[in-house]
């Protein structure tokens, strides 16, 4: 499928979306959401409110138990999965789950090589992004030997180097120091695409996002609107974020 075949005006369209884990735990329910092209949405909620589950659903890594979910105006299936993998970038909350190659360089080469980009071209891209993320000195290191902040930067570099049209980030600034946080926020501010950030760190969100979806502890969307929602203390308190 070519990129030009796709209508990007509505990037995500979720109707009565529900996901139940195999052990019967409800991940999310009654999710109705529209995310338009170039929207930058913050998904906020307390721990266990279903933020990560929702991101995995939007990435097509989990299949909804009930409801309709269209990404780029299509339902994700086996036939079009390649298109989605190429256009959706997701960074997991725990970089240890995300980094599985022997060296940082291998991590950076993994995705472009999977998409058939030549080794020399992939290396060029890897070096360019290593510079942007300030990880050029650790390219030969094993990812599991890195600090938390370095792991986050490597994971982000791996995803952003392919310039995905939809970027899904699960707690991108958790467990990192101030310098790394500033670096990550600076990169995210300059990202030109649709982005959904799941987080409960409200302090830095205003600079990056233009919309907010608040998840309740019932795993439903409590409110969805502009970033003025970030100032609604009662709502945030009800959601268990404050």
């Amino acid at each position: 499928m070519r990129d030009s075949d796709v209508d990007y005006s509505e990037i995500i369209l979720a109707k009565n979306l529900k996901y139940v884990y195999p052990d019967g735990t409800v991940g999310v329910k009654n999710i109705n959401l529209i995310v338009r092209k170039m929207d930058k949405i913050a998904l906020i909620g307390a721990n266990g409110s279903g933020k990560s589950t929702l991101l995995l659903l939007f990435a097509g890594l989990l299949k909804p138990t009930e409801g309709d979910l269209k990404i780029f105006d299509m339902e994700i299936n086996r036939k079009n999965s390649y298109f989605f993998r190429k256009n959706i970038g997701i960074v997991f909350q725990n970089p240890d789950d995300f980094l599985f190659n022997p060296t940082v360089m291998d991590e950076l080469l993994y995705t472009p090589r999977n998409f058939g980009i030549s080794l020399s071209q992939a290396k060029k891209m890897a070096e360019e992004y290593a510079k942007i993320f300030g990880i050029e000195k650790i390219l030969k290191k094993q990812p599991f030997r890195l600090s938390g902040g370095e792991k986050k930067r490597v994971a982000l570099a791996c995803v952003l180097m392919l310039k995905p049209k939809l970027l899904l980030l699960d707690e991108p600034t958790s467990n990192v120091d101030g310098k790394t946080r500033r670096k990550i926020l600076e990169i995210l501010k300059n990202y030109s695409g649709t982005m959904i950030i799941a987080t409960h760190e409200l302090k830095y969100l205003e600079e990056i996002v233009d919309g907010v979806a608040i998840l309740s502890m019932d795993k439903e969307i409590l409110a969805y609107g502009g970033k003025e929602l970030l100032k609604n203390e009662k709502l945030l308190d009800d959601a268990g974020v404050l």
């Binding site: 890594l61 997701i90 725990n94 599985f100 080469l109 993994y110 090589r113 791996c158």
Partner: peptide
């Protein structure tokens, strides 16, 4: 943990073939 790593691999274009830099 294995499931999550597998998801990460799929999200990064894993198609059932071993790929690694040289």
């Amino acid at each position: 943990k294995g499931e999550r790593v597998n998801m990460a691999m799929i999200s990064r274009g894993f198609k059932g073939k071993f790929i690694c830099g040289e």
